[in-house]
Nucleic acid binder design. Structure first.
Lengths: 210, 210
DNA sequence: TCTTAATGTGAGCAATACTCAATTTTCTAC
DNA sequence: GTAGAAAATTGAGTATTGCTCACATTAAGA
């Protein structure tokens, strides 16, 4: 199993596009039943009703299939979050940061087969390039929510990195290790607290404990 | 490759213990050269100078070998952090939280082959039970540092989860994606800011933005 | 020294990821 | 329509893998 790259060949005819989506669909179904290690490419091809050769015409290796699913999945989640942010545009009464965290958590709490897909994300993330996690997109969403919430601190490369990773990975690991937390109000509260602390101007925070 | 479990058989004689540690040593060496997917059990056995049968006498499957290495590695890091915390016992001038974050970051910045080992951690974490990451140990260390820093907010299950995961995974992903950040003072500052915000009593934080 | 337990061996099996030469289907231009 | 090219599909086959097991060797205990 080699490091994953992009699609090997572009499907031009409708027939070919059908094959690709059938393969992805079959893989998703198998992921509901089995662990990722137990899923073989031959198995996927069989369930999709295409030959193993067709599979490798479009995916350079096994990992690429899982990466494709993970990317597709996370894109959907982010669209949900972005949509929720847009919808809450005029809603200034409630804190925009909270709005976003709520949408974010919800997108993971609602989705089926969370754990399996997150594990795919982690597993691919751990071998592939970082492309799988669109952290830039998250950072932009955060920045938008921030502007609306009235916080003024400018995010540097470093602070943006810490903020986005902290939020993202906390939700990801919660989805796997403690999914019940996603339903708790307190979980949302803690994330909001964290994000707001990272966004508040420095003067208001420093040296309160000394 | 099946889900990893514990060691298959306990090495009683010195000869056997030697075999086990030789296998782990050989695997570590291979990890410096190759990606985890390209390392085969036969390859490990060959390099360790033991037969493949001996390898499977002590490790139930391939993953178990990597888990063993990851656990061993992370235990060392935590010992370093714990040690640093202890040493700074009388040192009340500097914030205990900062002391801990610094030791934590340093343990990742100094270690050789960080990225490779973290990837092992992530990959195993993504299939195995959560045992690989001793988050409880981290939570305890944090609590210790907290008490010393004078913060008073009690940690619940939820807040402890968010705090430990946010800190741990931010450092982990930084080690892989942006190792240069580990050397920046600002990175430490941001983590300290985050932790202190999570530990400060609620009254001092709420509704500052409204 | 004899017995038993612990350790080590490696040929071999089932399963895997992936290739490629050959075939079938669709598109295009006349 | 029809011919030819391009796109898509096929699946037997290859190399390699994770792992087992019957057997050989070494050490421990009496």
């Amino acid at each position: 199993m080699q490091p994953p790259v992009k699609m090997r060949k572009n499907a031009k005819q409708a027939r070919a596009k059908q094959s690709v989506s059938t393969i992805l669909e079959a893989t998703t179904q198998l992921l509901e039943r089995s662990e990722i290690e137990q899923i073989s490419t031959n198995h996927i091809a069989e369930r999709a009703g295409v030959s193993i050769g067709t599979l490798y015409q479009y995916f350079p290796n096994k990992t690429a299939i899982f990466v494709a699913i993970a990317e597709q999945d996370i894109e959907q989640r982010f669209n949900l979050v972005a949509e929720a942010i847009e919808k809450a545009d005029g809603d200034l009464a409630e804190d925009a940061t909270r709005q976003m965290m709520r949408a974010f958590i919800k997108s993971f709490a609602d989705a089926k087969h969370n754990a399996a897909l997150i594990r795919v994300l982690m597993a691919t993330r751990s071998t592939a390039e970082a492309r799988t996690l669109p952290v830039d997109a998250i950072a932009k969403l955060l920045a938008k929510a921030v502007r609306r919430s009235g916080a003024t601190r400018a995010l540097t490369e470093t602070s943006a990195f810490v903020l986005t990773r902290a939020v993202l990975w906390t939700i990801l690991t919660a989805t796997i290790d403690a999914p019940h937390l996603l339903k708790r109000q307190e979980f949302e509260d803690e994330l909001v607290r964290m994000v707001q602390a990272m966004l508040r101007p420095s003067g208001e925070l420093e040296d309160l404990t000394q």
